[in-house]
Amino acid sequence: MSTQIEQETETEESADESVTEPPVESPGDRRRQQKRERASRLDEQRRVEEEVSEDEETVSLKIFRYDPEVEGKEEPRFDDFTVPFHKGMTVLDALIYARDHYDSSLTFRHSCRQAVCGSDALFINGRQRLACKTQIGDLDSGTVRIEPLPHQAVVKDLVVDMEHFYDQMEAVEPYFDADDLPDDELEEQYQSRENREKVKMSTRCIWCGACTSSCNIAAGDNEYLGPAAINKAYRFAMDEREGEQRKQDRLRIVEQEHGVWRCQTQFSCTEVCPKDIPLTEHIQELKREAIKNNLKFW
């Protein structure tokens, strides 16, 4: 790696030289110039191989590839990449390296790289994980197998269509909407410490879709709201500031046939959630809440 950086600086310097060079060129200058260009071309060609071979540790990636718009790529396949490994390297780092050094057409979503934006949930070694939060050192097997999220249609390579997931999230009306606003609308609406603790974990959702992708029921029943959306509903239904009427409305949404009742407590969602939200627990609590609520009316 260190040699690579030196070479790069050299190339930059030589480029600077060529700009500042006087217009008059001697044959020797031209020869040297050509030689430098040849050398840098060779460097470019060899760079990747050298980097990999000079590094003691490498990691091999097996990446799902698919592109419906390019002939010869319509059939899904797996591509192998070998990238240099460094301590603390995440799967996202490896993906970025592979894209930047080997194949610029390798497509995946990523943005903040710190497990906040929720755009790089992938199926890594048979499990839904955030690529930026998963260190390669923590994975058991030598080869890192990277696939797009299951149960979502693949648009290209590792990019899946999230539209259905967002529809489900919107279906539970995921925004704070109190029955009564304070007289002065700009006044703060305080929440009790206990109530904040109750909804705390549910507020951590980053809409990455890992849970819904892991859910066997969501895979079979397309109408099922799914763990992420139900967790969102929980976050607001349990927020005491919203008031009783809004809570009733919210419960009515989740107690549909394809709402909370479809949850079979497989715990898949809870296990894959990168933000450690106890999704199953929240779904179960909403079930009991809905039952209690309906019993009250009898």
Binding site: D167, A171, Y224
Partner: peptide, 17 residues
């Protein structure tokens, strides 16, 4: 899923039973 939510179908009874 996102389309239509009727407020008259309460499906919790079968779950409870």
């Amino acid at each position: 899923m996102a389309e239509h939510y009727s407020s008259f179908e309460r499906k919790g009874t079968r779950w409870l039973f």
